[in-house]
Write a protein that binds this DNA or RNA. Structure first.
Lengths: 210, 210
DNA sequence: TAGGTAACGCACTAGTTAGTTACTTACAAT
DNA sequence: ATTGTAAGTAACTAACTAGTGCGTTACCTA
């Protein structure tokens, strides 16, 4: 694939357009609500190509979902938290997680959709399992370093901590619509977002500090 | 409606059966995935009755959703937390919230579905707003009593706290399927559930204790 | 430049789906 | 007993939906 050659036919580009359109559609209306025709149209591809490249709607969803997870796991690794002090590392992780959800709202909706279908679309993914193991080790390392230098208390389960870090950001954002109705608050104003982040950092720090 | 009279035609009973079936279906596959015919069949009612009593699929969803929220808000009030010490009251609320999600798994899925549709189905519900205000006041009261007697620190926002209490239970349960794949854990074993609850109580206590 | 292959498109099918029409039947009040 | 009304039913429709059969066209390689 030479950069100078204008390709009318470009399998990679078509695939990528389909993936992007699918990600957006699945995120917008869920797996059940998404329409294959709509994805094809938004990808400026023929519907036939979706079946050609991905097999079917569910298979397409699998690929979209796995990519979404691998993206966030890669971004986490890029933070290079092992170069920071335990305290800084943990706060950076909380901030990053929050900001990632804000910048990639489709991630949350995709994960919700995957869980509505009982995780069935992720089951085979060895790539994700490997990436997740590395992620847990990263958090475990932060906790151990912190405990070693006396900043953090010992005995904190890295998986539980990680679930909580995700939860306090994720839940706020995914349930903001019903939350806004009930609590008569603007969840998404600059102030509200900043307050929530501050509250969350505080929550995590109090949880681990010695 | 006399209890002794065996009614072949019973509007209330039919309505109730439709509501129960709808709740279960909407929870199982979401608003988009639910099928009106399936709901009718499971309610042992004719599909026409759904349109007769509720107007349509979306209106039915509105009623199911509002009921689900009112149910949990009522159950919370029934805890009579104002009779407990601040510390006991808060721990009881965390335990209750967790157990409620476990006992009523459809609640979580309904809320997810509502938020996928941007809360549109809840918008008009004044009943829910009233119930939610009372709920926030209940939490605020616990925090103020605790701060007054010196057990809790001051300045904790009751809405933020409440969001966090919900989040750390809700997220664990709703995302347990993708979580199980990634972290290779059984999220639902007796041990795992107890460990998570303990972790969550600890998280909340550390967050508010002086 | 010939020919194979992969990319692409059209138009269809077989099955669903929300919602409706037009009807029958039970029941309670008179 | 009569009758008005609400409860209930079956059979439809119009639109939609995932998936496919089959043919065409661009591009690469020998």
């Amino acid at each position: 694939m030479k950069a100078t050659t204008r390709k009318i036919r470009d399998a990679d580009a078509t695939k990528a357009r389909i993936l992007a359109a699918a990600k957006s559609e699945f995120a917008r209306v869920g797996l059940g609500g998404a329409r294959v025709d709509e994805i094809a149209e938004r990808a400026q591809a023929n519907k036939r190509m979706i079946y050609h490249y991905f097999g079917g709607k569910e298979d397409l969803f699998k690929v979209v979902l796995e990519e979404a997870y691998l993206d966030i796991r890669n971004a986490e690794q890029a933070l290079a938290l092992d170069h920071l002090s335990p305290r800084e590392a943990l706060e950076t992780l909380v901030r990053f997680t929050w900001q990632y959800y804000l910048d990639n709202p489709e991630f949350i909706t995709l994960v919700n959709s995957a869980n509505l279908h009982r995780g069935r679309h992720l089951e085979g993914s060895e790539r994700l399992r490997v990436a997740s193991r590395r992620f847990v080790e990263m958090v475990r390392d932060i906790l151990e370093r912190g405990a070693g230098e006396g900043t953090f208390r010992t005995g904190v389960d890295p998986v539980q901590l990680n679930i909580t870090i995700a939860a306090i950001g994720y839940y706020y954002l995914t349930n903001r619509f019903t939350g806004a109705v009930m609590f008569e608050r603007d969840y998404m104003s600059e102030d509200a977002l900043e307050q929530r982040l501050t509250f969350n950092i505080d929550t995590v720090m109090r949880l681990v500090l010695a």
